[in-house]
């Protein structure tokens, strides 16, 4: 090398210094911008009507219902979109009669475990890896990795890929429905593949 570099010089430090300041001015905002999704959380779960399911129509075979609400997808607002689907499973114990709203309010006030003796509401999302669980065999069967569940939502069969049973949701009778014939559910999604049931968002 013909030209010997000046290894340490004042101008060299100054050049590095300016470069460092510039990198910080541009770098810090870029990092904040990239991790912006941290501001986007799942909306607070509230009781929402299950569309397409009437209590009177429930039979031994579970039925699917749809949860609709305003949905925000990034910059787009869908005034009435499908948030997700649920399975409603009728159990052996028949629901009590609801002569008036007070009876419904009293029933809704019972602990969820007690209410679940009458009906179970599951998300259709498989707790294994999130496929949509269908009816199959004697209970539920996930089409992706053959996770099996009983009608009560428990893991069934040997070598089940799912690490927990189907995700049940809190539900109540719709107090505003004049016939007290409809269900409301607190719709949530849960982390896949965990043994514990952790809500997302």
């Amino acid at each position: 090398m013909a030209l010997e570099p000046q290894r340490r010089s004042f101008l060299g430090f100054l050049t590095f210094g300016l470069g460092a300041i510039f990198s910080a001015i541009l770098g810090v905002p870029i990092v904040c911008y990239v991790i912006d999704p941290r501001h986007r959380r799942a909306p607070k779960s509230a009781m929402k009507l299950i569309d397409g399911v009437k209590l009177d129509d429930l039979r031994a075979t579970p039925v699917q219902g749809v949860i609709r609400d305003t949905r925000v997808d990034g910059w787009t607002l869908y005034p009435n979109d499908v948030l997700g689907r649920v399975w409603v499973v009728k159990r052996d114990q028949a629901l009590p009669a609801f002569p008036d709203k007070a009876a419904v309010v009293a029933f809704n006030a019972r602990p969820q475990a007690e209410k679940d003796a009458f009906l179970l509401v599951f998300t259709t999302i498989c707790p294994h890896l999130g496929c949509s669980v269908n009816l199959g065999g004697d209970g539920f069967l996930c089409p992706c990795h053959s996770a099996r569940f009983t009608l009560a939502g428990a893991q069934a069969g040997v070598g089940n890929p799912a690490r927990r049973g189907m995700d049940s949701l809190e539900w109540e009778i719709d107090e505003d429905d004049p016939e007290f014939n409809r269900l409301e559910v607190k719709y949530q999604r849960f982390e896949a593949l965990k043994i514990e049931k952790n809500a997302i968002g």
Binding site: A2, L3, F22
Partner: peptide
């Protein structure tokens, strides 16, 4: 490269460039 008045890019021209960029 040995010619009279030839100067390496580092550090003076690098500094000029950096300052102008800033």
């Amino acid at each position: 490269e040995h010619a009279k008045g030839t100067e390496p890019f580092w550090p003076r021209q690098a500094f000029y460039d950096m300052l102008a960029c800033m």
